[in-house]
Each structure stands twice: as structure tokens, then as C-alpha cells.
Design a protein around this nucleic acid. Structure first.
Lengths: 189, 189
DNA sequence: GTCTATAATTCGATAGAC
DNA sequence: GTCTATCGAATTATAGAC
């Protein structure tokens, strides 16, 4: 029973510190500009430790970019408040966790990160939209439209930082964007 | 009068070939992964020529990322067809010129490219929206919302390439997205 | 105007002492 | 488990021959 009772190993703290620093650097600089050396310096450990724990830069990114949207069960949401619920949820999720910003920046230039983004879309967003009961033939398309607006909001607010989008209060964004998502989810073109 | 009668210099063809290759590489790989060596190889010239003509990698990008949205005069568009006009225009503009894809990819990781994106937004999109006559106090915000949807569409369709967004026909996209832009431009939240 | 040669960095990754 | 030392490759940029 060497593994059945997980004892907090000393290295766990180091692993966590590396992941935290990696998310920050990948979020701020993207995949190519974020260097293992810089990440290690932030985490106050030796660069070779990163390689030891995560094998390669790609392995480190894969671990750091693990992201759960934590979408609510859309079938339990009042049908006329789907858009509002989604925008509010996305905003809260992004502002509290920079992992998505890291994934978004990296996906622009790194093929592996882009593939991860597509998987996140298919496994989480498209799956949630498919589960609440509109015409199955159009759910993928509806989910894609929702992604185009929500990722565009994230891109302009957190990556490019367009001043008017950055300055809008979360509640103002909800007011403006919720009807868009509502129509993409339940409307006809 | 050594310059008043511009004679086609031999080097002009080389300059143009470099720019074309640079746009392709920047659009496909982003700023960091696109190398001067690869661009020079595409243009069938020596890498040192790129430095000679454009001074540095940043100077080359600045020249290659020059982009004119060529927005129509919104004051001349029927007020209830503003959204439709804009989506159609953006789609046509993007599919015919990869410069915006290059700018979009680079803006994710390169601070200079992001600044360029903000300038393009302020000087062209925000200016066009301000010129057609809604409440001046809200025009910047309306332009920001339009950017969030249009850049999100470009990001999901040309950069991350989410399958459902890639597969939608331009006319379907117009049908779905036009009402969104129409409301951002002329509606109340 | 074009190209060769190379300088000066910087990076990811490895080997091995302790 | 942690760190020192370093390898090998790739990059931007420069100096200078032709």
C-alpha cells in the first residue's frame, strides 16, 4: 500500500508553483515568448526542474492549459434567460482564472493549443448546448455562433484590450451581449 | 528632379515579393514563429535583403500589416441594413486578403501588433461608426461591441478554425450575425 | 544590389554531481 | 530532489567582399 494512502509529497508544492507561474507566463506572453527559464525564475526553482516534472515545454503547456468551463446545466435554466446566464458565467469564469487567457493567446500561434481549443469547444460548449433540447441538426452551428461572440469578447477585452470593451462594466456587457447569445441559442436567423 | 518622375526601380519587384511572402508567413505562423529566413526563402531572395529593405523584423511586420478596412460610408447605407452591410463587407474583405489574419494572429502575442490593432479599430471602425449619427456618447462603446463580434468571428473562422464556424456559408453567417451588429449599432441594450 | 560569413544571443534539452 | 554545467540548434542582426 505504497500509493493507496496519498501522502503529501514534498514535490507537490514545487509542481503547483510551476503550474501557477506557467499559467501566468503563457497568459501574458503566449506560447513562443514564454520561456521555461522565465517560468522557473518566477517559481523560484531551477529550470531543469520544469523539464524533470513535465518532460518538455509542450507537456508543461498541456498541464497548465487544463481548463474546465464549469458550464451550468442549461436544461435547468429558464429558457428565456439562457443568454444572460451564459454571459454572466463566462465573465465570472474568465476574470477569476487566467488559464483561458493563456489558452486563447497560445491558440493563435501554436497548432497544439488551437487543437486544444477546438476540443474544449466540442467537449464542453457544444455538448452543453446539445443537451438542452433545440433541433439537433442546428446545435453545432448554434454553439459555434456562441463561441464566435464569447471568444471575440474575451479577445477584445483581455488580449487586444480595446479601450471601450475593457472599460465596460460586467453588467453592461451582460445587457448588451445576452440578447445575442439568446438569439444564437433559441432564435431563427 | 531625381524623384518627381518615379521610375520603376529594379528593387521594387523584390520589395513586393518580400511583402507578399511576409504576409503569408505572418498569417500562417504568427509573429514569433515566422522567421526572416523562411520569408526570404519563400521570396527566393537572400535573408540579408530583408534586413536591408526593412531594417528589422519589426519594420518588416509594420510594412506587411498595413491594412485598410475600406469601410463604406455608413451614412449612405439604409439605416436598417447597417448590420447586413457590415458583415458582408467584413467577410469579403477578409477572405480576399490575408493581411488581417496576419495582424490578428500577431496581435495575440506581440505588443506592437496589438497596438496596431487598437489603432486600426480607433482610426477606422470607431471613426466610421461615429460618422453616421447615433448618440456621440455611445459610439465608442457601440464600435467596441461590433469589434467583439466581428473579431470573434474572424478568430473562430480563420485562426482557431472551429468546424461549425468554418463550414457555414457566408450568406448563412450574414443572416445570423447581421442582426447582432444591427442591434449593437442602433439598438438599446 | 546581392551574397558569404559570422557575430552575439537565446532557447530547449541533457548529463551528471551531490 | 535539486542544482551546475553545458550541448546543439536556431534566431536576429551586422560587416564586408564582389
Amino acid at each position: 500500500m505504497t500509493e493507496t494512502a496519498p501522502r503529501a509529497r514534498r514535490s507537490d508544492a514545487t509542481r503547483a508553483a510551476i503550474l501557477r507561474a506557467a499559467r501566468e507566463r503563457f497568459a501574458a506572453d503566449g506560447y513562443e515568448r514564454a520561456t521555461i527559464r522565465a517560468i522557473a525564475a518566477d517559481a523560484r526553482i531551477d529550470p531543469s526542474m520544469v523539464m524533470r516534472y513535465y518532460g518538455s515545454k509542450e507537456g508543461l503547456f498541456a498541464a497548465a492549459a487544463e481548463f474546465d468551463l464549469r458550464l451550468p446545466d442549461l436544461a435547468a435554466v429558464p429558457p428565456d434567460r439562457l443568454g444572460e446566464t451564459l454571459v454572466r458565467h463566462f465573465l465570472a469564469r474568465w476574470e477569476g482564472d487566467e488559464t483561458l487567457a493563456a489558452l486563447l493567446r497560445a491558440a493563435s500561434t501554436n497548432p497544439g493549443a488551437a487543437e486544444r481549443m477546438r476540443l474544449l469547444f466540442a467537449d464542453q460548449l457544444a455538448a452543453a448546448v446539445a443537451g438542452f433540447g433545440t433541433d439537433p441538426a442546428t446545435t453545432a452551428r448554434r454553439a459555434g455562433l456562441v463561441a464566435s461572440q464569447t471568444l471575440g469578447l474575451a479577445f477584445t477585452r483581455y488580449i487586444v484590450r480595446l479601450p471601450p470593451v475593457v472599460e465596460m462594466a460586467p453588467e453592461d456587457l451582460v445587457e448588451w451581449v445576452a440578447p445575442t447569445l439568446q438569439r444564437y441559442l433559441t432564435g431563427r436567423p
